[in-house]
Amino acid sequence: MIKHLRSAADLDAPTATLILDTAGEMAALAGREVKKLPTLRGRTVVNLFYEDSTRTRISFEAAAKRLSADVINFSAKGSSVSKGESLKDTALTLQAMGADAVVIRHPASGAPHRLAAWVDGSVVNAGDGTHEHPTQALLDAYTMRSRLGRLDGLRVAIVGDVLHSRVARSNVLLLTTLGAQVTLVGPPTLIPVDIAAALSPATKVSYDLDSVLPDMDVVMMLRVQTERMQDSYFPSAREYSRRYGLDLARMRKMPEHAIVMHPGPMNRGMEITPEVADSSRSTIVEQVANGVSARMAVLYLLLGGKA
């Protein structure tokens, strides 16, 4: 079993499948009255959050608590972090506290890699800069598999600001590992250079959303921040949503069975219209529920055995 989950690239196909299968068992247990399991009793999980992300933190917290781990929330706000303590000094503090796992959310790409060098416990990347967010990719893959029954051969479009998206990077890596065919869609300014060579040679790129939609099983919309306009990535919010936003007319171009995903938080009216977000094809609420199961699976597989 792997020690850390820093990148979706840490997962080969058997390990990724094991996590999804385990998440399935966890989800089944979530339906009963007693949700708590004794599995990680006596283990300490630290949520080390250098960015505000209530949804991700709560999801990890719920996952750890359902497995009976002791949870310590270490938030950058109101702690020594804002007084300029270095990541290394914080790591040594967590080490002294006996953290078995550190879940880290950080604005700098690669912070989980650095942290892993300084602590003995497992490190779980809960989103680092514009790099990766591997547990989001796991819950997305789990959601696709639950809805569509498979991942192998699935055609998935990831649409929007791929350049700044950690969700996109992790999804490309994980989905490709599991046999899906990923097409990245967005304005050329928001598709990073050499993306196929960087992540997976099978990755396709398109600048034309309309031509891609009829062939997709899954359309995943990424959040696009309107601030990107100031840096000339696109001229205006209106032009962006006209070219790359998902509205009802576009959704009708998708095959009957195809689903719409969004990692949240949504910019309703920008990349996705409310009617699409709230439609029966949208898995947005399921994704949140599946997040807890996927994170339970990750924590169990990292911490549930001999260290």
Binding site: S109, G110, G129, R169, V193, D194, A198
Partner: peptide, 16 residues
Amino acid sequence: AQMHEGEVSTRLGLTG
């Protein structure tokens, strides 16, 4: 900018 813009910066999510 953090590193050379290319395949590796794209993979690492570091500004090129």
